[in-house]
């Protein structure tokens, strides 16, 4: 079953582009990555899903229901964490969380306690006394306290220190194990790599690729780094499957996709002092999409 279905969603802000013809599905229980540089349209898509903004054309369904028409109803089961959190400054953390909980018709007090202990959050402080990172923690607790079936995270990790980020990711994994579907938007690819099953890549308002993380990796991209004893001509490695070729002094590095034997033969023919062949980070793979699209 699809938890999110986005069909040809288009949004223009006046004449300027928001998103164009965005379509993708998120299956139940999936962690779905939504990747793109700043200004690509990630937030626009997410804000439309949450009916904060209205699409110019196209539609989206969450839990099989139109996200605009049934907005309030489907939001009962959605937890949302924006990249920047803003709350009523003069409230105490606990009062804000209680206010947040009061929108859902269930008792959330245990969950509030549990989550804030996990995230190391002081409930008795006033919101305006909190640091950026602590505010973010309020956001996390606030987004999870009603045990939503779908989590929508818009660049959620900014402002969290590595330890908290770790805890937050563990929390997300736990939720996912319980069956919670997660839409995770980010421009930091390594964090998506850790969590997600599939990713959609958005650039300049359009989805340019939608793939499984495992396929992306299995696409047998290899990062090759070679140190040579004597300089090699630039064209030597300019064969099919080589990209991002860089030569600097005696160091040559590139990405390779294709028959690994071919490149091994190439390397064997020259005099080298060191060679490293490794899995490229997703970042490097995506740079193709980012730069060339």
């Amino acid at each position: 079953m699809n938890v999110i279905e986005v069909n040809n969603l288009t949004k223009y802000y006046g004449k300027s582009r928001g998103i164009i013809d965005v379509s993708f599905d998120v299956e139940e229980g999936e962690v779905f990555g939504f990747i793109g540089p700043n200004g690509a349209g990630k937030s626009t898509t997410i804000r439309t899903l949450l009916s904060l903004i209205y699409p110019t054309s196209g539609s989206a369904k969450i839990f099989g229901k139109d996200c605009i028409k049934y907005g309030p109803e489907i939001k009962k089961d959605i937890g949302y964490l924006p990249s920047e959190v803003f709350y009523y400054d003069n409230m105490k953390v606990i009062d804000l969380l209680k206010y947040s909980a009061s929108f859902y018709k269930k008792d959330c007090s245990n969950r509030i306690k549990e989550l804030s202990e996990m995230m190391d959050l002081d409930l008795n402080k006033r919101i305006d006394d909190l640091s950026y990172g602590n505010r973010k923690k309020v956001g996390i607790v606030q987004g999870l306290l009603h045990e939503p079936k779908l989590l929508i995270l818009d660049e959620p990790t900014s402002g969290l220190d590595p330890l908290m980020q770790q805890r937050f990711f563990n929390l997300l994994r736990e939720e996912n194990k319980k069956g919670v579907t997660i839409l995770f938007s980010s421009h930091i690819l390594s964090e998506v790599q850790k969590l997600c099953n599939r990713v959609a890549i958005i650039k300049e308002g359009r989805i340019i690729s939608l793939e499984k993380i495992s396929t992306l990796r299995e696409n047998s991209y290899k990062r090759v780094m070679i140190e040579v004893n004597s300089p090699v001509k630039g064209e030597y490695f300019s064969i099919d499957g080589v990209s991002n070729l860089e030569m600097k002094d005696n160091t040559i590095s590139f990405l390779f996709k294709g028959d690994i034997n071919l490149i091994m033969k190439k390397i064997a023919e020259i005099n080298i002092s060191d060679v490293t062949i490794e899995e490229p980070s997703l970042e490097e793979i995506f740079m193709h999409y980012y730069t060339r699209g």
């Binding site: 949450l50 109803e73 939001k75 959605i78 859902y104």
Partner: peptide, 14 residues
């Protein structure tokens, strides 16, 4: 202005 609209309007309330 206080940017709390996101908080309020992502709640299940019309």
């Amino acid at each position: 202005k206080l940017k709390t609209a996101d908080f309020l309007m992502t709640k299940p309330v019309r």
